Amino acid sequence: MSEAVRRVGIVGIGNVGKAAASAILHENIADELYISDIDTERAKGEAFDFADSIELTPSRTRVAEVPLAGLAVCDVILVAVTERKKVISDSRLELLKGSAAITYDIVPKLRKAGFKGKYVIATNPCDIITYLFYKLSGLPKNHVIGTGTALDSMRFRRLLSKAIGNVDPRSINAFMVGEHGDSQIAAWSHVTVGGQPLDQFEADNADVFPKINREEVEDAARHFGWEIHKRKGNTQFGIGNELAFFARSILNDARIVTAASVVQNGEYGQHDLAIGVPIVLGRNGVEKIIRYQLSEKEWEGFSASADLIKRYTTQTLEEHQEPAVN
Score class of each variant (00 low, 15 high):
residue 146 G to P: 00
residue 177 V to W: 08
residue 94 E to W: 05
residue 170 R to N: 14
residue 130 T to D: 02
residue 132 L to G: 03
residue 87 V to G: 01
residue 155 R to M: 13
residue 74 C to K: 02
residue 73 V to A: 09
residue 155 R to Y: 12
residue 177 V to T: 13
residue 131 Y to V: 05
residue 95 L to P: 00
residue 166 N to H: 15
residue 103 T to K: 07
residue 148 G to N: 09
residue 143 H to L: 09
residue 112 K to T: 12
residue 173 N to I: 06
residue 104 Y to T: 06
residue 68 L to M: 07
residue 81 V to C: 10
residue 45 G to F: 03
residue 71 L to V: 08
residue 89 S to F: 05
residue 51 A to Q: 14
residue 162 K to I: 13
residue 172 I to V: 12
residue 123 T to A: 05
residue 172 I to D: 10
residue 61 T to Y: 02
residue 131 Y to N: 04
residue 177 V to I: 15
residue 164 I to T: 09
residue 123 T to Y: 00
residue 73 V to R: 15
residue 53 S to D: 09
residue 157 R to C: 12
residue 152 D to R: 14
residue 113 A to D: 10
residue 64 A to C: 13
residue 147 T to G: 02
residue 173 N to L: 10
residue 106 I to H: 07
residue 111 R to H: 02
residue 47 A to Y: 05
residue 110 L to I: 03
residue 58 P to Y: 07
residue 98 G to C: 07
residue 157 R to V: 12
residue 84 R to W: 15
residue 74 C to T: 11
residue 46 E to R: 01
residue 45 G to W: 05
residue 82 T to S: 14
residue 106 I to F: 13
residue 68 L to P: 04
residue 90 D to Q: 07
residue 106 I to Y: 13
residue 146 G to L: 13
residue 96 L to F: 01
residue 150 A to E: 08
residue 54 I to S: 11
residue 89 S to K: 09
residue 76 V to K: 04
residue 73 V to L: 08
residue 78 L to W: 00
residue 103 T to E: 02
residue 108 P to R: 10
residue 68 L to W: 15
residue 131 Y to C: 03
residue 169 P to M: 10
residue 174 A to R: 07
residue 131 Y to G: 04
residue 55 E to G: 07
